[in-house]
Amino acid sequence: MATDFPAEIKALRTTMGSVRDVTDLDTLRTQIADLEQQSAAPGLWDDPESAQQITSQLSRANAELERVETMDNRIDDLEVLVEMGQEENDADTLAEAEKELTDLQKAVGELEVRTLLSGEYDQREAVITIRAGAGGVDAADFAEMLLRMYLRWAERHGYPTKVMDTSYAEEAGLKSATFEVNVPYAYGNLSVEAGTHRLVRISPFDNQGRRQTSFAAVEVIPLIEQTDSIEIPENELKIDVFRSSGPGGQSVNTTDSAVRMTHIPTGTVVSMQNEKSQIQNRAAALRVMQSRLLLLKREEEAKQRKELAGDSTASWGDQMRSYVLHPYQMVKDLRTEYEVGNTSGVFDGDIDAFIEAGIRWKRNQERAA
């Protein structure tokens, strides 16, 4: 069946119209002009933190404007390419247009999702912690499967990651793992992955081959920035040092370089052992601690607003996805109802469709509230 290029191009332009409305290009251009003026000030770098904030905002604003303008130009070019192919009845040109249409549909869809990420911390890099839940050794193995899934997802996109802490279980898998995704909007994208994940399969650790259900929790927090005002008094922190260890308790470090940091008022605990020195682990732990307390403060404020409004709705993040490997193969998001049968692809990092569906679902929930 021949592609209906006019209809497809019209649909792309309609979507881009919505993107432009949300992005508000006139306001964005005004913001860029103002930031350019601030960045050109002679004494800009007298205050390095303020200068860094201004230049970062300018870079992000320019990138946002360029993304929208580039997509509009690509649609215009596609229309010209289609006209040329149809006028000359050139099959090669029309095949090229077909490929560009497919690429554009994917890119415009991703841009549309990006415009939905307008939360206070959505532009931030992310810190993700995965913890094994109920299910014994299967849960620990599941936690390691999820860690690999997210690292493979980041690798597919070329996003830099850094594993900050891994706590290995005795028999197999992980008790917990913490890693960073160091790219803008990592938090906005991955925040919809937070919650309880469930795995159903024939346990490879059960001699009788019985079906096992296990659970793992995923926590996603925005990475702290220097401009965030989260000060933690030293007397509120308890810091313990211990020797880093690898799988099976084998020593990977002969000094007490690992750090466990506890925030006494809230009981929040952060462990870091993957840096080379105690100083580096302490700095990394403090940064993650600040990020967690920042999010905790935000959640408490949101809870207070809900109580004032009489809203008793439970958190949307719990029990959010099932991964079923037996008696059939399926991964299903319980919030969005999105599901796929390619479980191996999902565990290999193919989770973009789940993330996109989650972002759209979350935005609809926010609008409804």
Rank of each mutant, 00 (worst) to 15 (best):
K332Q: 10
H197R: 09
V82I: 07
T161K: 06
A217R: 07
L286C: 00
K276F: 06
D90E: 08
A284C: 09
V288N: 02
V192L: 05
A302E: 14
T70D: 10
G43T: 15
E337K: 12
D165T: 00
G246T: 07
A139M: 09
I130R: 09
G133H: 13
D122P: 05
I239D: 00
G135P: 05
G133W: 15
A186D: 08
P233E: 05
S118Y: 06
G248E: 04
V68N: 02
S50K: 15
R60L: 14
L296Y: 10
M261H: 05
E307F: 13
L65T: 02
L325H: 11
E88R: 14
S214A: 12
A139P: 03
K162Q: 09
F347Y: 12
G310Y: 13
V241M: 06
G43D: 12
L199I: 11
L295G: 00
L65D: 04
D318I: 13
D122E: 07
D206H: 11
R321L: 11
V340W: 12
E234S: 15
A91N: 12
G209L: 10
S167N: 10
T14C: 02
L151Q: 09
I239H: 03
D76C: 00
L111R: 08
S322M: 03
S59H: 13
A132W: 14
F5G: 05
P204I: 15
I351Y: 14
E339N: 12
S176L: 08
T196F: 07
E234H: 15
T262P: 01
Q123E: 10
L65K: 11
R198D: 01
T196M: 13
A61F: 10
N281G: 00
E337V: 00
G17P: 01
L117T: 15
S229V: 09
T213I: 12
V340Y: 12
E366T: 12
F142Q: 03
A172S: 11
V127E: 05
S291F: 11
Q290Y: 11
L223A: 13
K162T: 03
A63G: 07
R156M: 03
D92P: 01
S312L: 15
K332M: 05
G133K: 14
E225D: 10
E100I: 00
I32Q: 02
